[in-house]
Amino acid sequence: KVLVLALYDYQEKSPREVTMKKGDILTLLNSTNKDWWKVEVNGRQGFVPAAYVKVL
């Protein structure tokens, strides 16, 4: 399983997205889209901007 680090806070803007806080460790589920990556955080799955996270 691939983990990513949240570099910035992100507030979800649609039901398909998830909120994350800077420093959160998320599970990367899909990174085929260069702009939006699907992650799991706190038991929820959704998209975050790829530029806001870094693969650990």
Rank of each mutant, 00 (worst) to 15 (best):
D9A: 09
I25H: 07
P49D: 02
A50D: 01
L28S: 02
V4S: 04
Y8W: 12
L28N: 01
Y52H: 05
S14Q: 10
K1N: 15
T19C: 05
N42Q: 13
K21H: 13
P49N: 02
V55D: 05
P15W: 12
K34T: 06
K22Y: 06
E40N: 06
E12Y: 06
Y52V: 06
R16T: 15
L56G: 04
Y52W: 10
V41P: 01
A51N: 10
F47H: 08
L29E: 04
Q11E: 14
V55E: 09
V39G: 01
A50V: 06
L7K: 05
T27I: 15
L28H: 01
S14W: 09
K34C: 06
D35F: 11
K54L: 13
Y52S: 13
L5C: 06
K22N: 05
V48S: 01
L26M: 07
D24Y: 05
N42Y: 10
A6I: 01
V53H: 00
A50Q: 08
T32G: 12
D24R: 02
N42F: 09
N30P: 03
V2W: 10
G23C: 05
G43T: 06
L56I: 07
L26K: 00
K38I: 13
V55S: 10
F47K: 03
V48A: 04
K54I: 10
L29T: 05
V55K: 11
V39M: 02
V18F: 15
P49S: 02
K38H: 13
K34D: 12
V4L: 13
K21C: 06
E12W: 05
Y8T: 13
Y10D: 00
V41W: 11
I25V: 12
V53P: 00
F47Q: 04
P15Y: 08
V48T: 02
K22T: 12
V18N: 05
N42L: 09
W37A: 05
L7S: 03
K21V: 09
L26S: 03
V41F: 15
A50E: 04
D35N: 08
L26H: 03
R44S: 06
D9C: 04
A51Y: 12
K54V: 12
K22R: 08
L56C: 06
W37Q: 02
G46R: 02
R16F: 15
T27M: 11
L56S: 06
R44V: 13
A6L: 02
K1C: 06
K1F: 11
N42H: 11
Y52D: 03
E40I: 09
M20D: 00
T32E: 14
L56E: 06
R16I: 15
Q45G: 08
V41S: 11
P49I: 02
T19S: 11
T19W: 04
S14E: 12
A50P: 05
W37E: 01
E40A: 08
L7W: 04
Y52P: 00
N42W: 09
V39K: 00
P15V: 08
N30H: 10
V48P: 00
G43N: 12
R16K: 12
T32M: 14
F47P: 01
Y8R: 11
Q11Y: 10
A6H: 00
L28K: 02
F47C: 05
D9G: 07
D9E: 08
K22E: 11
A6Q: 00
L5R: 08
S31R: 07
V53Y: 01
D24H: 05
K1Q: 12
G46N: 01
K54Y: 12
V53L: 12
L7A: 04
R44I: 09
W37H: 03
Y8V: 13
D24F: 04
T19M: 04
S31H: 12
E17I: 03
G46L: 03
N30T: 08
N33M: 13
A6G: 04
R16M: 15
L28D: 00
Y10A: 01
G43K: 11
K22C: 05
L5K: 11
D9R: 03
K1R: 11
P15C: 06
A6K: 01
T32V: 11
V55Y: 13
S31C: 05
G23R: 02
L29G: 02
V2I: 11
Q45T: 15
K21Y: 10
M20K: 00
V39L: 04
N33A: 10
T32P: 05
K54C: 06
T27E: 15
V2K: 11
V41Y: 14
V18H: 04
V55R: 08
T27C: 07
L5F: 14
T32F: 13
M20A: 02
Y8A: 14
K38S: 10
K54A: 14
V18S: 03
T32R: 11
W36R: 03
L5E: 15
Y10F: 09
V2L: 09
A6W: 01
Y8D: 14
D24S: 09
G46P: 01
L26A: 09
E40H: 05
K13P: 05
R16C: 06
M20F: 15
T32W: 12
S31E: 07
K21S: 14
R16E: 12
K1H: 15
D9H: 06
P15R: 03
V39Y: 00
T19P: 10
M20R: 00
L56A: 08
F47R: 04
G46K: 02
W37Y: 14
D24E: 08
V48D: 00
T27V: 15
K22D: 02
F47E: 05
R16H: 15
Q11S: 10
G23A: 03
V18W: 07
T32Y: 12
P15K: 08
D9K: 03
N33F: 11
V2S: 10
L5Q: 13
N30M: 06
K21I: 14
S14L: 08
D24V: 04
Y8L: 14
K54F: 15
Q45K: 12
I25E: 04
G46F: 04
L3Y: 13
K38V: 11
K54D: 05
K34W: 06
T27D: 15
N30I: 09
Y52C: 05
V4H: 03
K21M: 11
D35W: 13
G23M: 04
D24M: 14
Y10E: 00
